[in-house]
Amino acid sequence: MFRILKKSLSTGIVTSRYPKEPDQAPEEFRGRPEVDFEKCTGCKVCSEVCPSRAITYEDDLKQGIRNWQLSYANCIFCGACEEQCPYGAITLSRFYEMASRNKDDLLVTAKFQLSSCPRCGQYFETIREIRRTPKEVSHGCR
C-alpha cells in the first residue's frame, strides 16, 4: 500500500492544461490536409484516390470551369491524396481543432479555368495542368 501511495505521489499532476495552453500533436500525426494552391494544377488525381469522397470535382463544360472541393467532414485523414499528388501540393498538417458549428466552414473550394481541345472544341483539362504536362488534344480525339 505504501508503494502505491509513493508511486501516485511521485507521479505528480498528469492532467494536460489543454484549452489554456495549446497541445501540439505528435510529429507523424495526420491532421487537416492543407492545399498549396500555388503548386496545385487541378489535375484531379486526389479526387480519384480519395476513399471517402472528401475531395470531389465537377466540370462545368458550358462555362469551362472546374469546381474542386475538399470537405473536412468527409475526410478520414488517410493521407492517400498526399501520397498520390504529383506536385506535392497537399500535405497533412498537425492541426486538429476542427470543430465547427456549420458544415460549410469545413469546406475548401477552388475554381480552375479549363482549356478547350483544338480539334473538337470541348473543354477537357485545366490550363494550369496543360502548362505543367503538355497535352495536345483531349482523350476522345487521340
Binding site: 487537416r32 492545399v35 494552391f37 487541378g42 473536412y72 481543432e97 476542427m98 470543430a99 465547427s100 460549410d104 466552414d105 469545413l106 469546406l107 475548401v108 473550394t109 477552388a110 475554381k111 480552375f112 479555368q113 485545366t126 490550363i127 494550369r128
Partner: peptide, 9 residues
C-alpha cells in the same frame, strides 16, 4: 478556429 476557404484561378 476553422473557416471556409475559397480559391479561384
Amino acid at each position: 478556429k476553422i473557416r471556409k476557404r475559397n480559391f479561384s484561378d
